[in-house]
Amino acid sequence: MKGTYLGEFEEIVLLTIGVLQGDAYGVAIKLEIEKRTERKPSIGALHSALSRLEDKGFIESREGGATKSRGGRRKRYYTITAAGKRTLVKANELRNELFNLIPNLSFYGLN
């Protein structure tokens, strides 16, 4: 398996899957990201990231129902695995920790 490093875009995708709560499939994730981050990931880039995340074991997928608008093709729904959750928590903690270590002074200086 590939390493468990979590890229920035991957983190956003992972978080979005969490946000969508079981309703996360390709187009839904894409639209959600667009809505919240003002970036427009291409569907290819998104699926590429999804496939990477799945390889790393952070998400799992199941195939769901087809709709007419999809030309009869099924959707694939993604959910976060336990490992994915752990990694997200860890990344969040790490960030907070580092954030807290920054002396206030520097912030003032920056402003």
Binding site: G26, K30, I43, H47, E63, T67, R70, R73
Partner: peptide, 13 residues
């Protein structure tokens, strides 16, 4: 299957 489905859906939208 999945990719084409997503592409069609996006297309409609």
């Amino acid at each position: 299957e999945i990719l084409q489905g997503d592409l069609y859906e996006l297309y409609e939208w």
